[in-house]
Design a binder for these strands. Structure first.
Ligand SMILES: [Mn+2]
Ligand SMILES: [Mn+2]
Ligand SMILES: [Zn+2]
Ligand SMILES: [Zn+2]
Lengths: 140, 140
DNA sequence: TGATTTTTGCAATAATGTCGCATTTGTGAT
DNA sequence: ATCACAAATGCGACATTATTGCAAAAATCA
C-alpha cells in the first residue's frame, strides 16, 4: 500500500472525504504502522498537531466509511486497524499480552465455531481475543 | 447454588471477605440472575441502598478473588458474571444483539482454535463474542 | 460490650468521549 | 489565482464511567 501524501489524498477522495491534512496524517499512520492503534496512541504519535475531538471524529468517519475497523476494545481504549485482513463476517483474531499490553493480529490463526448458537439467533460477526504472554514477557 | 443470606455470608467469609450487607446483596443478585450483569444494572436493581463507588469496589474485589469474571465489555460497560461456566483457560463465548443490546451466554457453543498462535507466544485465555440479531430482533 | 480492622458513603478528581459553534480549510468554478 | 461554498477543525463546555482520600459506620472477634 502506497503511503505518500498524494496516494493518501486520492484514497481519501475516492472514499468520499476531503483530503485534509489531519486525515492524511491519521490514515498514513495506520498504513505505516501496520498494527492496531488507539486514539491515545495516535495523539502521542502526532503530538498537538491535531485536536482530540478531530481524532475521534476522523476515527468514527473512517470506520463508518469502511476505511478502518474497530479491532477490539482494550480496557477503556477502542483500538482500530485497517480492515485488509478481515472479511465481512469475520474479523480476524487478536492477541493481547497481559503483562506489557502489546497486541498483535493473528492472521494465520483459525477459529472454528461448532454447535448451534441457538434457535432464532442470527450470527453476523465473531470477535476473538486471545490473552496471554508475548515472547518478550514469556521468560518473566 | 443456594442463595439465602447465611449461605452467601459463609461463601463470602470462605473467600476472605467480611460479609457486609452490600456484598451479600451483590453476590445474591448474580446468583439469582443467572446472567451477566453490569455495574449499572446492579445499581438499578439495588436502588440507592449501595453507593456507586462501593459497587465498583465490590465488583473489583470479587473479580480479583475469583468470585466473578469480567465476561465481556459492552460499549463502555464492563459486564461481570459468575465463573461457574468457565474453565481456567476458556471463558465461554457470549452473544450480543446489535439491535437491542441483549446479551446471552453461549454455553453449548464450542470454539476450536487451529494453528499456532506464533513463536514464543503463550495463550492463557480466549474471549469470543458473537454479534448478530436475537430472536426478537430477527424478524425486523 | 469494646477494641480492632475493614468497608462504606460522600465528594472530589480522573479518564474517555461527545457536542455546539465560530473559524479555518479544501474544492471546484470562475 | 481568486472566490464562494460546503465541510472539517479547534476549542471549550459537557457527559459518562470509574477511581481515590478520608471521616464515619459496620463487621468480627475476644
Ligand atoms: Mn488485526
Ligand atoms: Mn457468560
Ligand atoms: Zn508482553
Ligand atoms: Zn435483539
Amino acid at each position: 500500500m502506497k503511503a505518500d501524501r498524494t496516494s493518501l489524498s486520492d484514497l481519501l477522495r475516492v472514499s468520499g472525504f476531503k483530503a485534509t491534512s489531519g486525515r492524511v496524517e491519521v490514515l498514513g499512520l495506520f498504513i505505516r504502522a501496520g498494527r492496531p492503534l488507539s486514539q491515545m496512541q495516535i495523539m502521542e504519535m502526532l503530538g498537538p498537531r491535531l485536536d482530540r475531538a478531530s481524532v475521534y471524529r476522523i476515527l468514527s468517519a473512517f470506520t463508518e466509511a469502511g476505511l478502518l475497523h474497530m479491532a477490539y476494545v482494550d480496557g477503556r481504549h477502542r483500538v482500530y486497524e485497517l480492515p485488509d485482513k478481515c472479511g465481512h463476517s469475520h474479523c480476524h483474531p487478536h492477541f493481547s499480552c497481559r503483562s506489557c499490553g502489546m497486541t498483535a493480529c493473528l492472521e494465520d490463526f483459525q477459529v472454528k465455531c461448532k454447535g448451534s448458537i441457538g434457535k432464532g439467533f442470527v450470527a453476523e460477526r465473531q470477535k476473538v481475543l486471545i490473552e496471554g504472554l508475548c515472547p518478550g514477557c514469556k521468560g518473566k
